[in-house]
Simulated scan of single mutants.
Amino acid sequence: MISNDTLQSRFNQLRTNKAFELFVVGIIIFSALVIGAKTYDIPPLISNAIVITDWFITIFFLVEITIRFLGEPRKRDFFKSGWNIFDTTIVVVSLIPIEDSELALVGRLVRVFRVLRMVSIIPELRTLLISLLKALPQLGYVALMMFIIFYIYAAIGSMFFASVNEELWGDIAISMLTLFRIMTFEDWTDVMYETMTDYPFSWVFYVTFIFLSAFAFLNMIIGIVVNVLDEQHRKERQEEGEPTLRELQNELRELKDLVRQSSRPRTPQE
């Protein structure tokens, strides 16, 4: 008879197996395709087949969560991970038969969020998301500064260009939407040339705004995210026991001291 420790070890080997992880990722992608197929106008027969397929996918996810739970050495630690709680919630809610009820829309939304399970399965995606969340406080200050720049330029645009085009510069809110369009380079030259008919030097307004928003602040955002991502990778390497650069430098210094001491000529007293 197989002991509990042996079963736990086998389940642990299965859940950490790369082939099993790739298979789970494949099922998640297939689940996303099934969800997308439901948005088309398809014959009833195919629609019923998709519903049955969706239930098989849900049962597979339930089995996969069970395997991951049984493979955990300490079962209480399984729910200490936010990713495990998220995955379990998505699977459990998907099991509730609410297709023909008032909560059918909720059921469809939950199935859409099953695609996010790829983040919990693939460590690289998990690292990206964690880095992005950690960068949000710093990005908040950049966003605040961008809002100030937007507000100033929107006020100036409303004052000068409202007489040129009321639909684009009528008030400060519409002006901010127009500036967002300019920042994304969506036909911004048409907006500029329109105002240049009355204000020939209005190009300075657009060029300086684009430089501040699209170039300066965008590069700041990229720099913050890349810096936080690098720190997250360094932290993960330390948690995995991989030596840091400083530790390697200290070990190299100790080796140099040992070599220097061993190569030093000894005196007769020694």
Results as ranks from 00 to 15, higher is better:
M183R: 15
M183C: 14
T184F: 14
E186L: 13
E186H: 14
E186M: 15
D187E: 14
W188G: 02
W188M: 12
T189G: 08
T189C: 04
D190R: 07
M192E: 04
Y193S: 07
Y193R: 07
Y193L: 11
Y193N: 11
E194S: 10
T195Q: 05
M196I: 06
M196R: 06
T197A: 12
D198Y: 08
D198K: 15
Y199V: 07
Y199Q: 02
F201W: 13
S202V: 02
S202Q: 03
V204A: 09
F205H: 03
Y206R: 04
T208R: 07
T208N: 04
F211L: 05
A214T: 12
F215S: 05
A216F: 15
A216Y: 15
A216V: 13
F217W: 06
N219T: 02
N219L: 11
N219Q: 07
M220T: 05
I221A: 05
I221S: 06
I222C: 03
G223C: 00
I224H: 02
I224V: 00
V225S: 04
V225P: 03
V228D: 03
V228P: 05
V228F: 02
V228A: 00
V228N: 00
V228K: 03
L229S: 12
L229A: 11
D230M: 13
E231M: 14
Q232R: 10
Q232V: 09
Q232K: 09
Q232P: 02
H233Q: 14
H233I: 10
R234G: 06
E236R: 10
E236K: 02
E236T: 01
Q238W: 01
E239D: 12
G241W: 00
G241R: 03
G241A: 09
E242F: 01
E242A: 02
E242D: 03
R246W: 03
L248G: 08
